[in-house]
C-alpha cells in the first residue's frame, strides 16, 4: 500500500487547483476523491515509492508504506522538509528509531 493518506490531516489542499501530491506525482497516481475532498492513490500497484508526494504534502498527511509483499508491517520512514535541509526519522519493525539529517541545498 504505497502512499497512505491520513484522512484526519489531509485537507485536500483546498486553496489549490489540485492537491500538491496530485500536482507532483510522477505517475499521475495521486488524486482527489470528489466526494470526501481528500487525496488518495488511484492505483497502489503503480506507485514507485519515490516519496515525492510525502515530501510535498504541507500537512504531513501522507506516509509511504511498502507493499506488504516486500516489507513487514509497520516500519515507518518520515521526512521533515526544511528550507535547505531534510530530516528523516526511521522506525524499524522492532521500534528502533534512527534519525538522519542532511543538507539538500547549499546555503
Amino acid at each position: 500500500m504505497p502512499p497512505k493518506v491520513n484522512l484526519e490531516k489531509c485537507d485536500g489542499c483546498k486553496a489549490e487547483q489540485e492537491p500538491l501530491c496530485e500536482q507532483i506525482c510522477p505517475g499521475d497516481l495521486m488524486t482527489l476523491n470528489p466526494e470526501t475532498k481528500k487525496a488518495y492513490c488511484r492505483s497502489l500497484r503503480d506507485c514507485w515509492d519515490c516519496m515525492s508526494c510525502v515530501k510535498s504534502c504541507p500537512q504531513g498527511a501522507i506516509e509511504t508504506r511498502l507493499p506488504y509483499q516486500i516489507g513487514y508491517y509497520q516500519a515507518k520512514l518520515i521526512p521533515l522538509m526544511g528550507t535547505n535541509r531534510i530530516t528523516w526519522t526511521c522506525i524499524d519493525l522492532n521500534g528502533k528509531v534512527e534519525r538522519f539529517s542532511f543538507k539538500t541545498r547549499n546555503d
Binding site: D49, M51, T64, L66, G71, Y72, L77, W88, C90, D92
Partner: peptide, 12 residues
C-alpha cells in the same frame, strides 16, 4: 531511493 531505508527497517 529513500524507500530502501524503509525496506531495511521493515525487515529489522
Amino acid at each position: 531511493r529513500p524507500a530502501f531505508v524503509l525496506f531495511l527497517a521493515a525487515r529489522g
